[in-house]
Design a protein around this nucleic acid. Structure first.
Lengths: 231, 231
DNA sequence: AGGAGATGTGACAGCTCCGTGACGACACAG
DNA sequence: CTGTGTCGTCACGGAGCTGTCACATCTCCT
């Protein structure tokens, strides 16, 4: 299905990742050290690199930056595997251009979902990476949003919420499932937290706030007629 | 909400798990020994198995593998409960296809969150979302209804009632069974409440109000000739 | 035709749910 | 240390939803 390079020093985790990605039908290569990973990535140009943030010889961030900044390897998708769930790690990961991340301990299902989503996105770069939806434009890679051509700042959380809502557009998403997808599973939060962030999202969405609809008693729904999409 | 099988030998933990999962509205079965757990899982086909890694007679991993590798039981979600937080345990658990795990000691809240998340994910693709029935169109995922192409707003209760009636179409449903299916289990309501909501449903159904028939002395029935379906 | 029981209808009060603004905790930058 | 930005929680209030009741209408039986 796709060629995946795993850069991970911990043998157990390495094995889990390799096993499950193979199961999912991918062509897998493994590297234990950062330098080795970077070399293999440059030589083989895989479709996706699964990259541990902490490696014995160098930081995963360096590898990510090195890959993303070079034109030959810039097209390779990067998913970061982070040990700590700290927000800072995620932000830094994204700032470096990583396409997504998973936080240890993660469920296999989650990992495969994220890897699958990133690969799918990369396959149709023009359409999927830059989302244009009516007056709303989202660049996932750059983490930027424009409304009627004017750029609007979104916090990392708001951005994730917006993208998550968009990805399952025209489907109601319960507060619980949004908490699953936008926040960590282990996060113990009130469902009302979702309300507050939807409110903040709508404020920033301004003229296109109606794209996010409330479905009373159920959850939220991103909505838009197909005619509006891809414009 | 869902049928959960607990396979756990330690009586205290068994009790805690059972109690809390019942509180969360699940239908719980308990097994103390691995062989028993495997047998019950095969017979009852629960939605989810909460599986202790260490059992007196066999390893939880064996049970997990046995369930996941057989087509009949492969769809059952498995959440592992591990005594030690060692990475190796997780690895083994995931390699075998467990959907998630919790490490003892765990907070009850975290357990419930993970169980809920796993169930929600497993549920998602199973449902058939688009229903078209003559002039009536129902999108369950989006929670939207159209009549002759025009969208009509339904309250959460009305929507559930409509879908429930539709699902058992051409079969009479008593007021009592509708109360069970549409309302909360513990709700103690007058059967007349059903009448009122059927009335409201019919109002909104307008031209297709005749899809909901009254069966005097028994209950209500959603009807439609097969020719009308799937249009 | 008349009556009893079942069902339809309209009104209403109570309640749930959601939007909103405010606040405190926390992390980070200067 | 202080200022700034982000995030989670809470309390309030309004809008919408829902259960119940009383009464009207209908259906079936005698």
């Amino acid at each position: 299905m796709a060629r995946v390079l795993i850069v991970e020093d911990e043998p157990d985790l390495q094995q889990v990742l390799e096993y499950n990605l193979r199961q999912a039908g991918h062509d897998v290569t493994v590297a234990s050290r950062g330098a080795e990973g970077l070399r293999v990535a440059r030589e083989q140009r895989p479709d996706l690199v699964l990259l541990d943030l902490m490696l014995p010889d160098m930081q995963g961030t360096e590898i990510c930056r090195a890959l993303k900044s070079a034109p030959e390897t810039g097209g390779i998708s990067v998913v970061m595997v982070t040990a700590k769930g700290e927000e800072i790690d995620r932000v830094v990961g994204f700032e470096l251009g990583a396409d997504d991340y998973v936080v240890k301990p993660f469920s296999v299902r989650e990992l495969l979902l994220r890897v699958g989503a990133v690969l799918r996105r990369a396959q149709q770069p023009a359409e999927e990476n830059a989302i244009q939806f009516g007056a709303l434009k989202i660049d996932r890679a750059a983490h930027r949003v424009w409304i009627n051509g004017a750029e609007v700042d979104f916090t990392p959380l708001e951005f994730r919420l917006l993208v998550t809502l968009y990805e399952r557009r025209n489907r109601v998403q319960t507060r619980a499932s949004l908490l699953d997808d936008v926040w960590d599973v282990q996060a113990e939060l009130t469902t009302r937290t979702v309300d507050t962030h939807v409110k903040r999202l709508r404020e920033k969405l301004g003229p296109v706030r109606d794209y996010v609809e409330t479905v009373r008693g159920v959850g939220y729904r991103f909505v838009g007629s197909p005619a509006e999409a891809g414009r």
